[in-house]
Amino acid sequence: MKQNTFFKFTASALLSASIGLAHAGAVDSLKKFNNDSDGISGSFSQTVKGKKKTQTTSGTFQILRPGLFKWEYTKPYKQTIVGDGKTIWLYDVDLAQVTKSAQNQTIGDSPAAILSNKSALDSSYTLKEDGTSNGISYVLATPKKNNAGYQYIRIGFKGDNLAAMQLKDSFGNETTISFSGLNTKPNLSRSVFKFTPPKGVDVVSH
């Protein structure tokens, strides 16, 4: 369940914002964010609502474009997800298990791709303005491919900051992510996104 939460979320992942909303639309803000931001870091709270269960998690994330991300869940369980450009590593502390998979196959058109790849948005999604709620202006991103796995992704901005993402996957699960403490100019090194499985854990390849 936890692994699926990331891959259907994100990574996680993973993914966009900026403007004076009174003078420009949320789509313009999203495109400006993609053009201007080479790195992103901050905190998140994520709620996944399924047909039978609702689960809320929180933690921190770091992204260095293109293609690098680190997503760390701290509550209610500890889990680390790292994309190093070639491989996605998912380390579940409670299970003492690491799952590895090819990044280009796992990410696809997911939110993690949006956040870690500047070109993913325009190439894979159709964008349109989607109204304002609670001071947050939203972009509706609809996948161009029928097999993307998502019915839609909504990306919200408040002021100059990425504020929220809302997603609905093909199974009807709804994910809501709130961002805080966003830094669009973090001083990140590529070494941050290198992952070595801890000694004594099981490593499973997908």
Rank of each mutant, 00 (worst) to 15 (best):
Q3C: 04
F7M: 12
F7Y: 11
F7R: 15
F9I: 12
F9N: 14
L15E: 13
S16A: 12
I19W: 02
A26W: 12
V27D: 07
D28K: 06
L30M: 10
K31S: 01
K31F: 02
D38H: 10
S43F: 02
V48A: 09
K49A: 13
G50L: 04
T56V: 11
T57S: 11
L68H: 09
L68F: 09
F69T: 13
F69Y: 14
P76Y: 02
I81F: 02
D84Q: 07
K86Y: 05
I88G: 03
L90K: 01
Y91C: 07
D92I: 11
Q97T: 11
S101A: 14
A102Y: 05
N104E: 13
T106G: 05
T106M: 14
I107L: 15
S110I: 06
I114L: 15
L115I: 14
S116K: 05
N117A: 01
S119A: 14
A120E: 11
A120R: 08
Y125A: 10
T126L: 13
T132Q: 14
G135S: 10
I136T: 14
Y138K: 02
V139I: 09
V139N: 01
L140D: 05
A141L: 12
P143F: 06
N146A: 15
N147Q: 12
N147D: 15
A148S: 15
G149H: 09
I153M: 15
I155L: 13
A163G: 04
A163Y: 00
K168Q: 13
F171C: 00
N173I: 07
E174V: 15
E174F: 06
E174R: 07
T176W: 05
G181C: 08
L182D: 00
K185Y: 00
D202Y: 01
D202K: 12
V204W: 03
